[in-house]
Amino acid sequence: MKNRLLGVIDATTYHEELGELMIHRSLAALPFAGRYRLIDFVLSNMVNSDIESVAIFPKFQYRSLMDHLGSGKNWDLNRKRDGLFFFPSPIVDGEKHGIGSFSHFAANLDYFKKSRQEYALISNCYTVFNMDFRPVLDRHIQTGCDITEIRKHGRSLEMYLIKTSLLIELILKRDMTGYSCMHDVVSSYHHSYQICTYEYEGYAEMIDTINKYFTINLDLLQPHIWKSLFLRDQPIYTKVKDEPPTRYLKEASVHHSMIANGCQIEGTVENCIISRGVKIGVGSVVRNCIIMQKSQIGENCRLDSVILDKDVKVESGTLLKGSNESPYVIRKGTIQGALMNS
């Protein structure tokens, strides 16, 4: 099974409704669950499925993504042969883009032509799931399908398995056929390809809005969801950062929350996801919030249903309140003060 499957991650997607969190990063690099990035899930799934060559096609604000992935060492992809590849996609105004854009692939066609893998798995970068792709490949081969689309409850997860030679053919003939991406092919009735579907039974959520980002993060506080996503024999890998344990002072009160390393907690935290290096001052109450890395919350603050991006400073006495349907989002590196709320 090894070396039969090529991994292709399309990281070019931009969701307008996530714009507040994508000003300084690509969607693939969006922090999730306190210590991960969205791309960690599909990339880890590929590695756990014996995929040893992965190509990532980024486009928007991809510096943070490249910094996060580095050489691929944390995913065992820093190899002399195969490994992790970055192919920044060209920006063509007015051109239609979808998952698996053939024009993006065409700019790096040599990568596909030189690959040793007979099949290719093309995926989006923003699905939170834990899946073994090997059964998909087994069934794809057994049934003789040309393209297999992975679905969940009948809805496409925007993941496609295809023979590498057929993928190259679709790329080369894109102008003739009018197919610009994988979705165009599987949704068309004007070809002779055999399109199959594979229904995935496990947990899978696609993050494309602020509300879904907020809800799916906090859903991880439910043990049955956490256990269905983070499996012992199929770990989700991420960039390793060595930080000291979180320090809880005597005034601290923490309930039903996940708190990463390197934090200092003096206030009350309830039903929250707290990333590394966060400081929460004495007398502050933080409920139903997502607090990203190195943000600082002063004393006697009240935060409810808030998303703080990285490096945000909330000055003492500040009140910030959103709702489950419309969480209050604070941009990266900004300062929120009590006077701003008056």
Rank of each mutant, 00 (worst) to 15 (best):
I150L: 15
L27R: 09
A252R: 02
Y36A: 08
I99D: 00
R63N: 09
V54M: 09
S49C: 13
F32Q: 10
A11G: 08
V240P: 00
R25F: 09
D82L: 08
S192D: 14
Y213G: 01
D208M: 11
E205N: 08
G34I: 12
T148I: 05
A252V: 00
E251G: 04
L231Y: 04
T318R: 03
V47Q: 10
G83P: 00
G298L: 06
K113Q: 15
G98M: 02
C272S: 14
L18M: 13
N108L: 00
S342V: 02
G70N: 06
S101Q: 01
N300H: 14
R134Y: 06
D242S: 11
R134I: 10
V136L: 07
D132H: 03
N271D: 14
T13F: 09
M258V: 13
C289Q: 05
E17C: 05
I147T: 04
R4I: 02
L170C: 08
G19H: 06
H68P: 02
M340Q: 13
T318Y: 06
A252D: 02
Y213S: 02
V136M: 07
N130F: 06
L43Y: 07
Y14S: 11
D184T: 07
L84N: 04
L69P: 03
K332P: 00
R247E: 11
Y126R: 08
N324L: 10
M22T: 15
Q222K: 15
H153Q: 12
D40C: 11
G298F: 07
A107L: 01
N130R: 09
G322T: 05
I335W: 08
A29D: 15
F230E: 01
E20V: 11
N45P: 04
S64K: 14
V128Y: 03
C181D: 14
N324R: 12
D40M: 06
P327V: 10
I307E: 04
D132A: 06
W75K: 01
Y36G: 10
E149G: 02
L38N: 06
V54H: 08
D184H: 15
R134T: 10
K294R: 14
R25H: 08
V254F: 03
K294G: 01
C125W: 00
V306Y: 02
N130W: 03
D82C: 05
K59L: 10
R35C: 12
Q234H: 14
L231E: 03
L65E: 01
C125A: 15
I291A: 07
I9T: 02
M131R: 10
N124G: 13
T143I: 13
D93A: 13
C301P: 10
L30K: 11
N108T: 03
V314F: 07
Y248V: 02
L172V: 13
G100V: 03
A204D: 01
R116F: 09
L303S: 07
L249E: 12
K332R: 14
H97P: 00
R174F: 05
A55Q: 01
G154M: 06
F230T: 04
V54W: 07
N3P: 01
T334H: 12
I236G: 02
